[in-house]
Amino acid sequence: MNVLTKNLRLFWQGTMLSYIALFAWLRPVTYAASKIVMPLAQMLFFVFLGTYATNSNNVDFYVIGNAVQITAVSGIFGVTMSVGGDRWAGTLPYLFGTPANRVMLFFGRAFMHVIDGTIGVVIAFIWGVTLLGLDLSHTNLPALGLTILVTTLSTCALGLLMGCLSLITSNVMFVNNTVYFLLLIFSGANVAIDKLPAWMQALSQILPLTRGIAASRALVAGQGLAEIGPMLLTELGIGFVYGTLGYFMFHWFEVVAKRRGSLETV
């Protein structure tokens, strides 16, 4: 029991401190610029582009796709920077010097971003309804909420894996920016998956977001939780795989860095 309490406390403290230490977003203006205005502007850009492409015939397709994709702002950028932040701040040696439970420590880095990313998508849907005429009257809203949460979890899991890359490369901003934009192409947010070449379709099936976006579109079209359930389970499974890979990479990095004494030099 004592161990469990300690681990939960470690998880919570790691979660809160990494979030607070990393982001100046706790200042409302900066948060609004990065988490509200930027996502809104990006969503509007792709919705207008999609509207232009389809002569206004399929606006909801782009609104939903881009609203859900907003979760990658927290899931990719936020989580990556939370994991990588220890290296940049020089706290990695201290972190690896502690006997702290690594599972709690590692996954704790993503927890606040799951909440933050979920809120971000909800805000994006509110923009969609108020500014872009998205109709949610036939939507099972609790199921949509669950879909958003599951999609955010799986995207954050990819972010954890990317975060581990930030421990072994100095080009982390290059990596996470590229992944973020690749998700815009491969996830089906802006281009229907069946319009992509076969190899791109195959790749999109192993990425987070793809099923989350498809499930959200199905829910807005009036389908229920039973129909989208399998998609959510697969989305969750994909997240589990990325999260596990990330954890093993984190563990591997610790072992190699300790052996070589290369914590700050890799």
């Binding site: 792709f46 582009l49 999609g50 232009y52 492409a53 389809t54 100095s170 080009n171 901003m173 290059f174 920016n177 590229t178 934009f181 690749l182 815009l184 192409i185 802006n190 281009v191 319009k195 992509l196």
Partner: peptide, 26 residues
């Protein structure tokens, strides 16, 4: 600077790919 390489080369290229797919039917 990899961030600048991203901003100047990679991001416009990815936006071009997206736009070419999206505007294909035009």
């Amino acid at each position: 600077d990899s961030f600048i390489v991203f901003a100047v080369l990679i991001q416009p290229m990815l936006i071009a790919i997206l736009a070419l797919f999206m505007l294909k039917e035009k």
